[in-house]
Every structure is written in structure tokens, then in C-alpha cells.
Design a protein around this nucleic acid. Structure first.
Length: 291
DNA sequence: AAATCCAGCAACCGCAATACG
DNA sequence: CCGTATTGCGGTTGCTGGATT
């Protein structure tokens, strides 16, 4: 039993859109608004799948779409946001007015990705890290749905993204919380990691960070002036779930001070008894010093 | 001029999340 | 609460046009 198709494929056009189809779709949406993609093609008189209509509209026909000519500032911003967010193209696109996730993804794959592979200084590759060896990944059976390939220079490149579905906590961490109940500060610190992003998306620190990030006139210059972590293979985002681990994706989470940063790498257990946890939101709130 | 290669990009596909009845 | 429909996202495919042989 496979998944039922999103729509009947029979008699539907595929491939490039014609000017007439674009016109029909644009006029229909201008009158009726977006949404109800499944029924849109029939009602508009288009021989297209609803998903295809939606994609065409969002990536090409929607008002305000910028096309081509990614500026240097935009490119640097993409690199930095990618460093922060990984392959969450829609989030990245959300911070680049007029750009679509598809365009940014394509641009990354064809331009930036290539530059990075060629070792352009100052650029970084996701999910890398000196300790992110194949062994690390292979031994972590909790890392599901991740396909990896080995890249030159011993960096791993993630080719498939995995969404946050839950965050669970090791017994170690739970124990740590129990032991620190008397210490309200510590307990609260830990709580930041105990909430499932899927059920409590408001607690996704990265999402919060992005949502709260204002795109004012200074945004580009401020972001571009930030210093990235030294290592070209270190990133900075928390990841996800798995069966009984909190893992950190290429993360570098919690500097106790600006001069004392601790890097988490893929597959690292989140809890380190010698490590003084702070919630990521704290760093978000404290500005960009931790970047 | 013809054939081949290759980069760029639009579009497709499948999966996961969310909405809804 | 559950099943189904809808929407959104990210990876991948394949077409197109320019460059090269």
C-alpha cells in the first residue's frame, strides 16, 4: 500500500509552464486568493497538479519575487544563515525578502556549495567537524534517515535533512535534573532542552531566533560583521531527537564566556557533567556574542 | 556546423507536519 | 482520538542553453 497520489496524474501537463498557464493561474489567484491548491487546477481550468500550481505560484508568479543576481551581501547572508540553520531553506528564504527557498537552495547547490568544496576561505560546510568521522556516525544507530557521504578533507556532508520530531532526554540528563532540583537556576537551564519542538514549536530556539530577528536596514551589515567560529567545519545548531539521546548537530552551544566556547559535534551526547548548561535562548537573548 | 559536455534552474517527488471532520 | 486531506519542505531529476571540442 503506497501513499495515495496528491491528485490524479491522468491528462495532466508536466514540465515547463506556458505563458498561458501562468496567466490563468495568476488571474485565478488574484481573484480567489491562495490556498485550496488541490481544487485550484480544476476550478481555474488548468491541467496541472495542485502541488505544481502552488510551486509555480510561490517560486515564480507571486508578486515581489526577485530573480537572479544574488548580491554579495545576500550570498554572505545565505552562508551565515546556512551555518546557523542548516538546510532549512524556507527559514533562510524567509530572511531574504523576495527570494524563494528553491532559488536559495539552487544557488547554494550550484554556487556556494561548489565554492565551499573548493575550499574557499572563510566558508564552512554543514555537519562537518574534525570529530565527525564516519565512525561516529556509524556507531550512533540513533541517527536515523541521515545519508552521509565522505567529502575531501574529512568533512561529512549531510545529504538528507531530518526534521525535528521530538527531543528526548537521556537518563543521565534526567538524573542531572533530579540532582539539581534544589538549584532552581540549574533546573531552569536544563528545561530548555526538555521540550519537544514538534509539540512546542515556540521552544525551538532557532525558530524563535529567526522569528524574532528583525530585518531592518542594519540587518545585513550586522550579520555580515559577525565572526563565525574559527573552524571551517564547525557549525552551531542544535538538532534533534532520536530514540534516547539528545544530539547536537554540528552544534556549538554554550559558551560559558566568550573566551571559553565548547563545541558539540554530531553525535555528541548533550549532557556533559563537567559542562555548565545554559539554554540556547539565553545566547539568542544575549545577542550575537556567542557566534 | 555538428556533437558533446556541463552548469543552472524549474519542476517533480516523497515525506512529515498540520488541519479538519 | 483517529483517519484523511491538505500544505509545506527539502532532496532530486531532467530540461535547456551556453561553452567547448
Amino acid at each position: 500500500m503506497g501513499r495515495s497520489p496528491c491528485c490524479s496524474k491522468e491528462g495532466l501537463n508536466k514540465g515547463a509552464w506556458t505563458a498561458l498557464e501562468d496567466k490563468i493561474l495568476t488571474e485565478y489567484i488574484n481573484i480567489h486568493g491562495e490556498g485550496k491548491w488541490r481544487h485550484l487546477p480544476k476550478r481555474a481550468g488548468l491541467k496541472r497538479c495542485g502541488k505544481s500550481c502552488r510551486l509555480r505560484w510561490l517560486n515564480y508568479l507571486r508578486p515581489g519575487i526577485k530573480r537572479g543576481n544574488i548580491t554579495n551581501d545576500e550570498e554572505e547572508l545565505i552562508i551565515r544563515l546556512h551555518n546557523l540553520l542548516g538546510n532549512r531553506w524556507s527559514l533562510i528564504a524567509g530572511r531574504l525578502p523576495g527570494r524563494t527557498d528553491n532559488e536559495i537552495k539552487n544557488y547554494w547547490n550550484t554556487n556556494i556549495g561548489r565554492k565551499l568544496q573548493n575550499g574557499t576561505p572563510g566558508c564552512s560546510i554543514t555537519n562537518g567537524g574534525a570529530r565527525s568521522t564516519l565512525n561516529t556516525v556509524q556507531h550512533d544507530e540513533n541517527v536515523k534517515n541521515q545519508e552521509w557521504h565522505y567529502d575531501k578533507g574529512s568533512c561529512l556532508v549531510q545529504t538528507k535533512a531530518t526534521r525535528w520530531t521530538k527531543v528526548t532526554v537521556t537518563n543521565e540528563i534526567s538524573q542531572h535534573n533530579e540532582n539539581n532540583k534544589s538549584n532552581v537556576g540549574d533546573h531552569n537551564k536544563m528545561k530548555a532542552f526538555l521540550v519537544s519542538p514538534s509539540s512546542e514549536s515556540n521552544n525551538d530556539p532557532v525558530l524563535n531566533f529567526m522569528e524574532n530577528l528583525e530585518m531592518d536596514g542594519n540587518f545585513f551589515s550586522e550579520l555580515l560583521n559577525m565572526d563565525l567560529p574559527e573552524s571551517s567545519c564547525q557549525g552551531n545548531k542544535i538538532l534533534e531527537d532520536n530514540d534516547n539521546h539528545c544530539s547536537v548537530d554540528k552544534g556549538y552551544l554554550s559558551p560559558k564566556s566568550s573566551s571559553d566556547t565548547t563545541h558539540f559535534l554530531w553525535g555528541d551526547s548533550l549532557y556533559d557533567p563537567n559542562f555548565d548548561f545554559l539554554p540556547v535562548t539565553t545566547f539568542m537573548e544575549s545577542g550575537f556574542d556567542w557566534l
